[in-house]
């Protein structure tokens, strides 16, 4: 593999496992899908270049995951480690695919770059929002393989 663009990224601490509350163990209470739950789904995704998770690189943060269970909306902003990172699209795609595989189908998911954190922010957001382009990208075996590597590997 070629030298990573950002050879020495800042590494952040992983957050603790979510604490299980008593009402979560009560079968009669309905637990809504919330920000943390979706964050937990994407935080362990591997970075394509480094042996670190997106959370450890601070690419995804809990505060930038917004979930509205009633309106079936999930809104995620992610922050590439450097403004000209060529992996940004791939990371966005990996987040999308992970949620596609694990969230109930009723959710409309929007994945965008944190405003001001990437030079070609607009173009990438457009690509990630275009369903057909996402579908087409997943037809590409090479790309699919890379994304699968991002999503697998580490125990969840």
């Amino acid at each position: 593999m070629a030298q990573p663009e950002n050879a020495n990224p800042l590494v952040f601490q992983r957050s603790k496992e979510r604490q299980i509350l008593p009402e979560e163990e009560d079968d009669n209470v309905v637990d809504k899908i919330d920000d943390r739950e979706v964050f937990d789904l994407i935080r362990s995704i591997n970075d394509p270049e480094h042996p670190l998770s997106l959370e450890e690189l601070n690419v995804v943060e809990e505060s930038k995951v917004k979930v509205d269970d009633d309106r079936n909306e999930v809104d995620i902003s992610f922050t590439p480690t450097i403004p000209h990172c060529s992996m940004a699209t791939l990371i966005g795609l990996a987040i999308r695919v992970k949620l596609l595989r694990t969230l109930p189908a009723r959710f409309k998911v929007q994945v965008e770059i944190t405003p001001g954190s990437h030079v070609s922010e607009k173009a990438i957001n457009k690509q990630l929002a275009d369903k057909e382009r996402v579908a087409a990208a997943l037809e590409n075996p090479h790309l699919l393989n890379v994304i699968n590597q991002c999503l697998g590997g580490r125990p969840q």
Binding site: I20, D31, L41, K98, R101, T102, L103
Partner: peptide, 26 residues
């Protein structure tokens, strides 16, 4: 089960779904 009313159940269901699709893709 991915949309179960209990979070702890969803967690297990999501894990099942994730691992099967992952293997399917491979």
């Amino acid at each position: 089960a991915l949309d179960d009313r209990k979070r702890l159940v969803r967690r297990e269901a999501m894990a099942v779904s994730a691992v099967i699709i992952w293997k399917k893709v491979i």
